[in-house]
Design a protein around this nucleic acid. Structure first.
Lengths: 174, 174
DNA sequence: GTGCGCATGTAATCTGTTACATGATTTG
DNA sequence: CAAATCATGTAACAGATTACATGCGCAC
């Protein structure tokens, strides 16, 4: 799955601007996908050249003009091809775990610091997910609810491990 | 965290070949980091040019010659700088969840197929993690054990969600 | 009058992936 | 005799990130 696949999927649901797409990425997609303007605008441009999307400029008063993108039949075909392609294995990259692995090169205080920081990071992410869910749950499909549940359970699991090791008061954790 | 940081960390623990490094990536690191030869060899080359590592060629009989890499003081400094840099938020990218999000564009059978496939994928990964752990646990540090626990709990959490939705026999899941 | 929300984009760079290319020895 | 293990690498490409660049209106 690449950025373009997700963008096509979002445009299949409804026409959107690059700004709208970014909103989706930063909220509902944030726990399983990441993308920003630097990827969105260039991708929309390429997709337009390829005829997968088309653009309509909506003039607005008091606000910048909107470039609203619509998916075309060719775009829909590409998206359907994506949906039928082989599902790629999830990717998890954790700087935190890499550091833990090399934990013996830092002091116990630094280690504790990492664990506390990680706990805080997870709490913030879990919170954001809950809030996003609260906002959208009324018009979420069952599969979208599974996607949410997946995120919620992952954060819970991560929190559990981090808390376990913090509580154990491993002043000797090493 | 980048590939080079992890490579430097591994070389700080002991001298290794590109092949050895790959072994580590495919086993103990597989649940929180990914890297292969295509990244390892070019990175080692760059690190050598920068004076962060140095190479010794060991001739072997019946086997290809080994290029054993040692970390230098400059390399160690770079690694220490990495350890003191800001911890980056974990990255999770899930093709599976992206598809679920767009689930309404496929049939219920395809959806079920995705869930079953995902269950299978998770089972295989969890199993591999357990086996790797069984093999290494005797010489694992406490922090390395946390890294393992993290992975184990994550797979458990993921499995839980997937199973819940498969068992609910949602012939109408949508 | 400062920062946030709305809104667009480019250019350079980085980093990593994929495919290619080779080849001996050991194990089943 | 086939497959796995050991062992090294390059070239082309893809994909995404970062920094840069702009600008109005509104709320505090």
């Amino acid at each position: 799955m690449k950025g373009r696949d997700v963008i096509l999927g979002l445009l299949l649901d409804m026409p959107r601007t690059g700004y709208d797409i970014n909103e989706m990425f930063q909220t509902v997609f944030s726990h399983f996908f990441s993308g920003g303007y630097g990827m969105i605008y260039p991708t929309l441009k390429k997709l337009e050249i390829e005829g997968k999307v088309r653009k309509e400029i909506v003039t607005q008063e008091g606000k910048p003009n909107k470039h609203v993108f619509y998916i075309t039949q060719e775009g829909e075909m590409e998206f359907q091809n994506y949906l039928r392609s082989e599902v790629q294995t999830d990717v998890f990259q954790s700087d935190f775990l890499v550091r833990l692995y090399f934990g013996r090169h830092v002091s116990e205080d630094e280690l504790k610091g990492w664990l506390k920081e990680e706990k805080q990071r997870i709490a913030v992410l879990a919170d954001r997910l809950d809030q996003t869910n609260a906002k959208w749950k009324n018009n979420m499909s069952d599969t979208q609810k599974i996607a949410y549940a997946f995120g919620a359970e992952m954060y819970k699991a991560q929190m559990k491990v981090v808390e376990r090791y913090l509580k154990e008061d491993n002043t000797h954790v090493k």
